[in-house]
Design a protein around this nucleic acid. Sequence first.
DNA 1: TGAAATGTTGGGGCG
DNA 2: ACGCCCCAACATTTC
Length: 470
Amino acid sequence: MPKKNVVHWFRQDLRLSDNPALSAAIKAGSLIPIFIWDEDDKDTHALGAASRVWLHHSLHALNQSLSGKLRVFQGDAKTVLQQLCDEAGVQKVYWNRCYEPHAIARDSAIKQALSSSGIQNTSFNGSLLWEPWEITKADGLPYKIFTPFYRMAHLKGPRRHTLNLLAPSFSNAPPSRQAVDIDALALLPKLKWHETLFQHWQAGESAALQALETFAQGGVDTYSISRDFPAQNTTSRLSPHLHWGEISPQQAWERLQFEGDNENIEHFKRELAWREFSYYLIYHNPDIPSKNLKPRFDRFPWRQQTAQLKSWQCGQTGYPIIDAGMRELWQTGHMHNRVRMLVASFLVKNLMIDWRDGAAWFWDCLLDADLASNSASWQWVAGCGSDAAPYFRIFNPVTQGEKFDANGHYTRRFIPELERLPDRYLFRPWEAPTEVLTQAGVCLGDNYPRPMIDLKQSRGEALEAFKRLD
DNA sequence: TGAAATGTTGGGGCG
DNA sequence: ACGCCCCAACATTTC
């Protein structure tokens, strides 16, 4: 007797391994693997440009590992699913949960619609170590501080890895007329900008597993310390893979656990847990992308400085470590973690520009753009998050540059016009004697900007503004 | 997962 | 030998 057709709906789980919903679907019948591009340009949560590029490549990779059987649709997800189930006689639909507020709303409406037409639908946890509702304080309320959250989560232990992926038997239901080619989704921008991005990255499950392997076999050995130095590429570089679920956090967690137990591995697990905490926060605070978690920040006098925002975005602030970071973001779709903190601190605490403007730019440019992490991290930096950096913690881009990029490898890589400026002045070119600048071919205000604001003064103003919030 | 301002200490130069 | 000053080095406080 032929097996019944079942649907696995791929969303942010673009992988075959450790995929609980997919495994369940494969066990249940003949597989129709689908992806639905259901985005409307008017959506406030519409994917950023870099994310779309990643998705484009990741879908191609996924389709390849499914022997070209991935069916791609465009349009309202509920309509697409209902029509597909109807056409192909599907009685069972499987997916892994998403946790963004708009996705939760969409999915619960779909769940209801499918159930009421008698179609069984089951969702799984495919992207988090801990379900956000499972970790609570003794009084049942959600944690607001990372450390106690992590302690409790640790006690529970992470979700177990899904074993035993059976080889799928694909449904031979005729392709739906609605199915479209991945390229027809037009996820790539018209400009050639995306081609430079993908000189630095490879999307898809096998690239993700390879990145994990590389990290586990070497990168992690010095992780705790060297992760702070942007010139050393010793972070895991797993973030975009994790965002799209090309790899699960369980796979990362367990692979590193296999290497043993030391300070570096502990530290990395803690970073995975920060990702979890972001999802935890957005689940319990759906407004986190747009609303200060600390309401008193609603009175903060953010400055509407379009020109200054633009200088920051383009890496033309006159502070080399800031500009290097912003240019790294534009050129590679990525920015080193420490530098993210520096540029964010500079925007919010020196320029006094709204963190939401910074978050929006990151959202558009980052290949690893993730609503939960992006929102939670910007609120953390701005000081308006629940467990946030204290407002007075303001990074000094000169000191930080000298400390974390002492030999200037990172900064010079992204700011070639400062290539020949000696280390001594690299992070403070305005202090360099004229002849040093001339010899290095630097002309301030011409081929590299003068500092756009005074650090000491802007810091003082921000601290004043903060004090007035109390 | 800060930095600046302020305070304290102790060694060395010097009269 | 002693007091004095200077200042680096470190510690503490404040934002």
